[in-house]
Design a protein around this nucleic acid. Structure first.
Lengths: 234, 234
DNA sequence: CGTGTTATTGATAGATCTCAAAGATGGTGG
DNA sequence: CCACCATCTTTGAGATCTATCAATAACACG
């Protein structure tokens, strides 16, 4: 498969580069596809490459010594991953797995270093993007530290719907396979508790559920659950 | 007070700059001191300046709409704060308060932008530093998501002792006033639970307590509590 | 139509929060 | 120098959320 410049149009880290620079960037890029379950990189391995997702969805997870898993991030089209590790020269903080057929563009670490040294806007863009990620993590951390499970799940679902919601006839459907276990690993709880919460919401018409599927039917109601201290159960 | 180049020696973001560059950096800097309780910037305000702490200790906290507070970071000498916000052009994510008499060096946002555009190593350093912060946050998030309170407190105390521990006759003392409430806000729990946990540890000789004071007497034992799934009570 | 994965649901135990009150501690002003 | 006050801390009892244990059910795939 050949790559052309249009691929880089929406990639934030290369924003503001002129045509010549873009061509340099592209000349060092490689294309790589992943089938569901395949992984791009593994936790604690030295970072060797930096990815931009073109199509599909990748999940970045961290595994604890006790075997608990935490989902750090779901990567959507246009987003990059492995960036902080390659740019900063660290080991990968987690494992990146494809949750559906995915296509990526890849740069080696050496290529990235060349590009950053040569085109200064790249480093500046990276600072912006990392700053934004940082804020997102701070938000999640604050939620984990101060909110009950139900509200955390609500916030998480709202974010997922905003970033990966596809308009369906009955609401906003998360457009990739998302298990109860995944949600649990994003919110610091167990799949059992997630299941109970989602089913209670389904009763009230807030969501619609399927196997590895969630459709947000009433995002107003979900927002109310996310914001209100009380359960407003009634 | 006059500033001289030695002040910048240990500041990571200006590492690798030549002497002339360092002088440019310094010429745009300003000195500012804070008494305990005074703040450098406030949550959600537009970021106008970027700080490096010379002496003392600052605390960056985030307040939720319900009035819960979360401690994002304790800043020690040599560290910078307000960096991500200024470099990325965001509002400050939290409020920076002095917990003891502190001295800082300050750059305005405009100055920072000038410097970053002119001296490319600065942006690269920023990427490194943000990457490292990111990893730290991921660690805390994982702890919040998967560990019980006691282990989280243990991990937090170990980190504090490593970064701000002063050798005392009876162990490592955290060298700034640190209340039970502060620890609770770092670990996502309540001051009551922290108090109970610390007192239990004191009984076992792991720590020694005072008003706004913690001394780690047995960091091995603390490490064991932090790592072991079970409480290993006795 | 098996078979493995994913999801639901009930019962129970336990960790933590919440509510409540009292006890230290250190600083300040008279 | 002492009394007072604001803060910080300890401690108890009870309520509740949530994890854990256990079993069954639904689903997709070959």
């Amino acid at each position: 498969m050949t790559l052309d410049l249009s691929v880089l149009e929406n990639v934030a880290i290369f924003k503001g580069l002129d045509r010549a620079a873009m061509e340099s960037v592209l000349s060092l890029a490689r294309h790589q596809a992943f089938a569901p379950g395949e992984y791009a990189f593994s936790q604690d391995h030295d970072s060797r490459a930096f990815y931009v997702l073109l199509k599909g969805r990748m999940k970045v997870t961290q595994l604890t010594v006790e075997g608990h898993q935490v989902v750090l991030h779901f990567v959507g089209p246009g987003e990059m991953f492995g960036c902080a590790a390659v740019c900063g020269g660290f080991a990968y903080p987690g494992t990146a797995t494809a949750v559906m057929q995915s296509e990526t563009v890849v740069w080696t670490r050496a290529a990235m270093e060349t590009l950053m040294a040569r085109f200064s806007p790249i480093a500046l863009n990276a600072v912006h993007i990392l700053g934004a990620r940082m804020r997102e993590m701070q938000t999640r951390m604050r939620e984990l530290a101060t909110e009950r499970v139900e509200r955390r799940v609500a916030h998480t679902l709202l974010r997922l719907a905003a970033s990966a919601g596809r308009r369906a006839d009955n609401g906003l459907e998360i457009e990739f396979p998302l298990s109860r276990q995944d949600i649990a690993e994003m919110t610091g709880t167990t799949l059992h508790t997630v299941s109970r919460i989602l089913n209670a919401w389904q009763e009230r018409g807030v969501v619609e559920l399927g196997r590895q599927k969630v459709v947000v039917r009433d995002s107003r109601a979900l927002g109310a659950i996310a914001e209100h201290p009380a359960n407003l159960g009634m």
